[in-house]
Nucleic acid binder design. Structure first.
Lengths: 136, 136
DNA sequence: ATATTTGCAAACGTTTTGCATAGTG
DNA sequence: CACTATGCAAAACGTTTGCAAATAT
């Protein structure tokens, strides 16, 4: 949290109640959170920001690479930038399951960095298919 | 195109002017196309469907796995399902560059299929970062 | 003949904006 | 004090829907 605090300050942001609660929520869940879920979790903490405020916070945090935004099946999801994993997305029930696969892309990223002169900050890897329940 | 035709018929769809032109557009471009780009390309072919018609076509084709839909930085992109590649997405200029990496995920997919009892249909792999121009 | 596809207009839901006020550093 | 963050209401935006007419098989 300390490093986050300084990152935010460096970005010209202020550590407000909303931002703090938002980061706590994202830190406590080790998975992708939708806006609706974020709002629910904030409510549990008795933090009920206006929608525009929440949206503006999310834009700020994404812009400064403090959190990542991914869109899966038309819904936006957020997670802390350093909490990175991959996902299995069920095309039947839309459930999203985490899957851990460490270092699998390191070589490819090095290759891309050299070959394409592209400075990689992050990546997104999602597998789409059908979970056990939804297989007919 | 022939196989696509039969796939569409099997799915209960009809080969209309719009659907045909849409598939031609997607087949001619070997990259992700946004809705706006699709509309422009259709116009060149003098096919100008109503927005709702186009959206309905896209929903149909995605639903039947004839095309893939990916959302990158908040914009929806489409491509023929068998035309699969990965992308470098520039966080500066939003440009999307294709990158070919064959078979890199085969082993992982086999592992996931067994370990998670998950039937993989497709996957999405995107690298986010800064292209040569946007590196300061 | 039957079912799908189409365009239109209205409805919808989400996100964005302007502005005045409150709060942070 | 200067600048960011907030809530509110309005506006903007893309998408979806219902329906009657047109079209494909």
């Amino acid at each position: 949290m300390h490093t986050l605090h300084s990152t935010i300050k460096k970005s010209g942001g202020r550590l407000t109640k909303t931002k703090q609660a938002l980061l706590e929520v994202l830190a406590s869940q080790h998975c992708l959170l939708s806006k609706a879920t974020i709002i629910k979790q904030l409510q549990r903490k008795h933090v009920t920001p206006n929608r525009s405020t929440l949206y503006r916070e999310l834009v700020f945090l994404v812009k400064h690479h403090i959190i990542n935004q991914s869109t899966i099946n038309g819904t936006d999801y957020f997670e802390l930038a350093h909490q990175h994993h991959h996902h299995l997305v069920c095309l039947g029930c839309n459930n999203i399951e985490r899957v851990d696969m460490d270092n699998h892309l390191t070589k490819q990223e090095q290759y891309i960095t050299k070959q394409h002169q592209f400075n990689i900050i992050n990546h997104l890897l999602e597998f789409y298919g059908y979970c056990q329940k939804c297989q007919n």
